[in-house]
Amino acid sequence: MSIEYNNFSLSKNEETIISSLSLRTASSGIIAVMGVSGSGKSTLLKVTNRIIEPGLEGWHINGDISFRGKSIFSPDVKPENLRQQIGLVLQEPVAFRGTMVENVAFALRFGHLKIKRQHANKMAEDVLEQVGLASEVSDINRVKASELSGGQLQRLAIARAIAIKPKVLMMDEPTSALDPIATESIEQVVLQLSDEILIVLVTHNPSQARRLADEALFMEKGKSVHGAQSIDQLFRSSGSKAFDQFLSVHQQ
């Protein structure tokens, strides 16, 4: 279930955001996407999930992105169906109305799976157990999602995303605003998920990339500096001035 970027470029109102990206991901494991702010990391995730839609709001693409051997921009690919296959956890998740279980069950019931309430709630409880929230919160059937802490809400967002069983899960800096304990619990969930599906993890944190990722991509001004490399290779012999600067800033 790999994603393939074929000389892919994205621009908005003539301004290039992603430039000539060519990359083929593995079908499982973790690929880290690093880069400074404004390098196009989050935009890459959004266009892959088709939250950014070519032709609308000034967005324009060149090249292609393929998933399961088919262009994701093909007219017969519905964005809703694609998003179920390629999930996205946003940097700042928002709680839906209702309890934690209702939050996770929502997409199961009203998305394309159309699972009945009782069954959806049971599935939601299992997923909340998987991300460690069921044991941490007193009653997941009573506690409102809006009452959760930042780290818990982030894990709830991951639970919502994995409940619909995507083949790829993209995560946009999921631990950027969290304390070390919450970060560790999310990293555990990510590692556990990576056995079955591909995780694309956008992170500002090189140490986190090194801890978790199998491969990494470093982006600068919309371009991939190295292409995807194994994480050890990237850190051992970067040779890129931009990546060395990025590392030194984070080591300070």
Binding site: E80, R83, L88, P93, V94
Partner: peptide, 10 residues
């Protein structure tokens, strides 16, 4: 809220 729902395929 709209983006949050969209990413789940709703």
């Amino acid at each position: 809220l709209k983006i949050q729902c969209q990413v789940l395929g709703l």
